[in-house]
Nucleic acid binder design. Structure first.
Lengths: 171, 171
DNA sequence: CATGGCATGTAATTTGTTACATGATTTC
DNA sequence: GAAATCATGTAACAAATTACATGCCATG
């Protein structure tokens, strides 16, 4: 369902092919969702069948023909309605589940888990910062900024967890 | 797949019925995942068939019989292996997608979207704080603390977005 | 006597992932 | 000549949601 609105939302800006959509998603929303062709194309077909988008085949010289999809009025209405509904998303962090279940591990093992996570986040933070600088639109900037803020908040939280573990466990 | 380890991980603490698992998940991990019976029971059956858990039917007076599942050595090994692998989770926030796609909305509409989100989070924050106080184990406390930290970080980010919008749009 | 908690499950559907399959062109 | 980019898709599978279906017991 998410991909439906993702596609529709991007088509609201300008008509695009499935390939183009994939590129845009990867560039701007890679951290939010990762739409692959296996999802994109079938979803486009469905949207077409439902009249939310139209299509026009464009022949090109020197490269494969492409199908450019435009959003219809119906599709546009659908996105607009969706946009106005509040989003209810959960945290849904696999790591959080791991940490919760890690009570059966030794303090050292838990610490290793947490440290590894922090190292990973601190590494990813660099890429995020680069994304932020290279953001084209304000919206893309916000997304990057959000990711960065979440990353920082998690790192701080991890630090708290780390000190808690070291202080609690026998030295 | 997540539910598989969720179940296995909880069974590592003590043998439980599907019903018990559900209760525990709802209480301690409600913000991470929301396992329903439709997932829980089939997963338990699969785990049983694969020898990751064993089962014992317990008759009770005054209430329905229950099936208490215990984790096997094989299942325990599986969780332990999984725990040690790094988790790679994406942000996957529906709201983030909405905000990104909201460039076709008027500044006022975007502002409404953002404000509503902030109000929602600030409301949910109260429940989270209560969860934190009532956390039984350190692990449950960490989860609550994580949720709280993420909530606060998002609220701050929303504030930044709000000021950005008000300053940029024509007054 | 109705509501809610205890307790089990199935079936249909939706959603998404991964891998497979094809083929031309451009750049290194 | 190999690899990357452009461009389309299908099929098999995995995962999860929702709704349905049942039934007893305790409390108000």
């Amino acid at each position: 369902m998410l991909h439906r609105y993702l596609i529709l939302g991007l088509l609201m800006d300008s008509p695009m092919s499935g390939y183009d959509i994939r590129k845009q998603v990867n560039a701007a929303l890679g951290m939010v969702t990762n739409a692959s062709y296996g999802t994109l194309y079938p979803t486009l077909h469905k949207l077409l069948a439902q009249g939310a988008v139209g299509v026009q085949e464009i022949s090109q010289i020197g490269r494969p023909a492409k199908k450019v999809y435009q959003i219809t009025e119906r599709g546009r209405q659908e996105v607009l309605d969706w946009l106005k509904q509040p989003a209810d998303d959960q945290l849904q962090r696999e790591f959080l589940l791991k940490l919760y279940l890690a009570r059966n591990l030794s303090a050292n093992d838990v610490l290793a888990l947490v440290s590894a996570r922090r190292a990973k986040l601190e590494f990813e933070r660099q890429a995020l910062q680069a994304d932020k600088s290279g953001a084209g639109s304000p919206q893309a900037g916000w997304v990057a900024d959000y990711a960065l803020a979440m990353c920082d908040a998690e790192v701080e939280w991890l630090r708290r967890v780390e000190t808690h573990i070291t202080q609690t466990s026998v030295v």
